[in-house]
Write a protein that binds this DNA or RNA. Structure first.
Length: 569
RNA sequence: CGGGAUGUAGCGCAGCCCGGUUAGCGCGCAGCGUUCGGGACGCUGAGGUCGAGAGUUCGAAUCUCUCCAUCCCGACCA
């Protein structure tokens, strides 16, 4: 492609309405333009990259035996009402009405549609298992679209749905998709981690998320290199770190007498640590929660930890909300709550992080007062112990005992075992060998295609711009003629361009009659892996400079070596 | 939806607090000339409903109100 004939508008400055690197770079490099919040046009360069990502996905999916189909964006309301997600999804679904006042939605996902389709065309165990996928636009009216392509309202997803006759079928497909997803990301050439995740709204037994590692990632991953465990931060299993001896005030001093201390207006752990010059680990954080029935519970944690509500809910088998000014049915003195002197109706549960501690500080259940030297069992009882917090630095891998490490990531893929959730609701049944009618056992597997593009930028860029991995780079070679008014340069670069075209090398020839600096800057900004420069050195000695985008390394080749160089790319 | 901020030329911004002729600057864009390996220079020029509507005023980009859009922080997700 000749730059002068292409449509590739680049910007020198960051756009004012983007804060995240992948967003501003994809606008500056001329990949996308914003149409409305969370809605984008793909310009030629961005579209090219998208197609490359899609093709890698398509090839690997096909290799894994999945079969491509194409379903509509617009879907009738009935099937969503049948699965009840018309209501569960709620305002997150774009809904519309046709001229006959029938309800439709713009598909946020396609479980309903494909299950309905399967139910009328797959009747026999002989047709199973089968794995169907598509690469399609999805619509989700996100509460808050943000970060450009990372959370858009219209985005492209590869979604696959497997139908099996048995759990074994599902396991096989699930494992195949797991391996395929890993292969896809490896082929694209990005660093990633697979984590155990929550199943969320889509439902099902368990799931894995594929995370592209990036500093600005939305998700925190807790992992252990020793035993290869990795999980979402919220979900991570861990053992409480051993209490550091240097912090161990009172560990060996025996139990001291309780003292009430005046702490006017000191409500937060942070204020308290400053006021008393004590580490937060010596303070009991007491978090009050309530369930729908109006039962109130108190969870005690080490002051440096945060209550993981999901863990508390699992433990108590009830859904919970934090107590605040609005739902404070017992009028608890927020900021000064503690285990000692609580109402009898409130059951107290302890996090392992304080189990073996003594002489701690806690709220006195009286405004502006705390207690010193509180001791478990001597001063109050705990109804149950558990792990109720998020991990903190130093916490240990549950299976091997090594310290957990943390990384930031962007979720680009998610695979689920759905089981019979949708087949049951949408009448997706087949006749099995034993002559019995059974629901399909399903799995679903998604990759965010447009998100993958943004995640790649997020992982791979520098202050000059994007650094594309070769696999998805829009062009492999950026051919730069530094001075178009030098005929020798212009002609040599022109014939090099023609030669590479004939050899099917993907080359962007910057033939614009502008200063060389702009060409270098643009080339770096849009992230083409190799710069091939015809300039001064060519005029003098027929030397062509080769410069690599990723590590900025350089080599020189002579004109007569050019064909060989191109051959070995 | 709650909290915070912003809307002035294609892009990035100043002007607004303290109202007063033709609304500025940089980049980009067009023409001419000079330059030519890391965002060159000179001259000339085009380009604006000051987010929208209403109000206050002799007079509004500037003050008031309403609305809209966009971005950031929280619950959701590929």
């Amino acid at each position: 492609m000749r730059f002068s004939k292409y449509f590739l508008p680049t910007l020198k400055e960051d756009p004012s309405d983007s804060d995240i690197i992948s967003h501003s770079l994809s606008i500056r490099a001329g990949l996308i333009r914003k149409v409305a919040s969370g809605i984008y046009t793909f310009l030629p360069l961005g579209f090219k990259i998208l197609k490359k990502i899609e093709n890698i996905i398509r090839e690997e999916m096909n290799d894994a035996g999945a079969i491509e189909i194409f379903m509509p964006v617009m879907q009738p309301a009935e099937i969503w009402q049948q699965s009840n997600r018309w209501y569960e999804y709620g305002p997150e679904m774009f809904k519309l009405v046709d001229r006959n006042e029938r309800d439709f939605c713009l598909g946020p996902t396609h479980e309903e549609l494909i299950t309905t389709m399967a139910s009328s065309d797959i009747y026999s165990y002989k047709d199973l298992p089968v794995n169907l996928y598509q690469i399609q636009v999805k619509f989700r009216d996100e509460i808050r679209p943000r970060y450009g392509l990372l959370r858009a309202r219209e985005f492209i997803m590869k979604d696959a749905y497997s139908f099996g006759a048995s759990e074994e079928d599902l396991d096989k497909d699930y494992d195949a998709m797991y391996a395929t997803y890993a292969k896809i990301i490896e082929r694209i050439g990005l660093k990633y981690k697979v984590v155990e995740a929550d199943t969320g709204l889509i439902g099902g037994k368990f799931s894995h998320e594929f995370m592209i590692l990036a500093k600005n990632g939305e998700e925190t991953i807790a992992y252990c290199d020793e035993c290869r465990y990795a999980a979402n931060f919220d979900n991570a299993k861990f053992n409480i770190r051993p209490f550091p001896v240097s912090d161990a005030a009172g560990l060996n001093e025996g139990l001291k007498d309780i003292k009430e201390i005046h702490t006017p207006g000191i409500k937060t752990i942070e204020d308290l640590t400053n006021f008393l010059t004590q580490p937060p680990q010596n303070i009991i954080k007491t978090i009050a929660v309530k369930n729908n029935e109006g039962d109130v519970f108190a969870f005690l944690l080490s002051g440096d930890r945060t209550l993981n509500l999901a863990k508390a809910e699992k433990f108590l088998k009830t859904s919970l909300e934090l107590i605040n000014e609005d739902n404070n049915i017992y009028k608890l003195p927020l900021g000064f709550i503690g285990p000692l002197g609580l109402k009898k109706e409130i059951s107290v549960y302890g996090d392992y992080s304080i189990q073996k501690r003594s002489n701690l500080i806690a709220g006195a259940n009286k405004i502006d007062y705390h207690f010193k030297n509180i001791n478990i069992n001597r001063d109050f009882e705990v109804k149950g112990w558990g792990n109720f917090s998020y991990p903190v630095p130093g916490d240990l891998c549950e299976s091997c005992g090594r310290e957990l490490e943390y990384d930031k990531g962007i979720e680009v893929g998610h695979i689920f075992k759905l089981g019979t959730k949708y087949s049951t609701k949408l009448n997706g049944k087949f006749l099995d060998k034993d002559g019995k009618l059974k629901p399909y056992i399903m799995g679903c597997y998604g990759i965010g295609v447009t998100r993958m593009m943004a995640a790649a930028i997020e992982q791979s860029h520098d202050e000059k711009g994007i650094i594309w991995p070769k696999s998805i780079a829009p062009f492999l070679i950026s051919l730069i003629a530094t001075n178009m008014s030098e005929n020798k340069i212009k002609e040599a670069a022109g014939s090099a361009y023609e030669m590479m075209l004939s050899k099917k090398v993907q080359v962007l020839y910057d033939d614009r009659d502008i200063s060389a600096g702009i060409k270098f800057k643009d080339s770096d900004l849009i992230g083409i892996p190799i710069k091939m420069i015809f300039g001064k050195k060519f005029l003098q000695n027929e030397i062509i400079d080769i410069e690599y985008r990723d590590d900025a390394s350089k080599t020189e080749i002579k004109l007569n070596e050019l064909e060989d160089f191109v051959k070995n790319l």
